[in-house]
Design a protein around this nucleic acid. Structure first.
Lengths: 142, 142
DNA sequence: CTTCATATTTAGAATAGTTCTTATTCCTTG
DNA sequence: CAAGGAATAAGAACTATTCTAAATATGAAG
């Protein structure tokens, strides 16, 4: 389990690696993402951050999320037309979108799976990232 | 190569299978998608359809594209935040998004690849579709 | 510990893409 | 040909996001 302090430090480290500052807003937003990993939208994050930091603005939430994505601490995921969702899971994983409930589940991938998928690329296609999205029905209890 | 007549008939067939009508607008939009398979946006399709049918409205383009998607004649693809793109390729394939040019390439998948990917799902996850999106650099001439 | 330059935040306006609403037109069937 | 449902057109409305400008905070340099 990651303690709050540890993740703050990790955040500060990543930010300064990129020449960025650690700010209270960025910390709150990152902690919100870590606390409930249900792939929230920017609006969701805004709502969850507000109790801890009432003056925070939605624009800041967007800014911070974008910053976290650029530091590789958070992944942005887009399902169809809806709002972008944010995910602090850094391990290689796919996403399963439950069409009945709208919920999104992380699917851990066995090591090598992404390389195996990349192997289908024709010569000279150089992929920096692979995203796999399943759609269907997830087990009800999961 | 698919003749215009053939694709019109295929379209009419698919539509009536779903209890929908074949209309001039739907035919033009489908033919626009078949003619240039560069994953156009709705606005692109609108612009390409207008010369053939000057009175067509953007709302109709959206309606028809949605209809075609529901008939399984067209796939809608979403890369990050941008507009939805449309693809008339019905064979199992992945998409490669060239980050330098913004172009999208279809990547044909070997038979069985999708099942292989589905095999990573834990029990009771039942996927109706799998989408694979690569991002990176494509060969310049492709 | 000030001062300066810059990074960040805020609030609200602006924008892009899409969906909705309403009226009209077009088929299809009786 | 009349009625009813399906489809289209035009533009308003909406949602998610980005932009803009001003205020604030931060870190570095003296």
């Amino acid at each position: 389990m990651v303690s709050n302090t540890d993740s703050s430090e990790a955040l500060a480290q990543r930010l300064s690696d990129s020449g960025l500052r650690s700010t209270p807003q960025r910390e709150v937003i990152y902690s919100v993402l870590l606390k409930k990993r249900d792939h929230p939208t920017a609006e969701d994050v805004f709502a969850r951050a507000k109790p801890e930091m009432p003056m925070i603005s939605l624009a800041t939430v967007y800014n911070c999320l974008e910053t976290l994505v650029q530091c590789d601490l958070v992944r942005a995921v887009n399902f169809e037309r809806g709002p972008t969702r944010y995910c602090p899971n850094l391990r290689p994983h796919a996403h399963f979108h439950d069409e009945a409930t709208g919920a999104t589940h992380d699917i851990e991938l066995p090591p090598g799976m992404l390389d195996q998928v990349k192997a289908v690329l024709p010569p000279h296609f150089d992929a920096t990232s692979v995203e796999i999205i399943f759609r269907g029905k997830a087990p009800s209890k999961a």
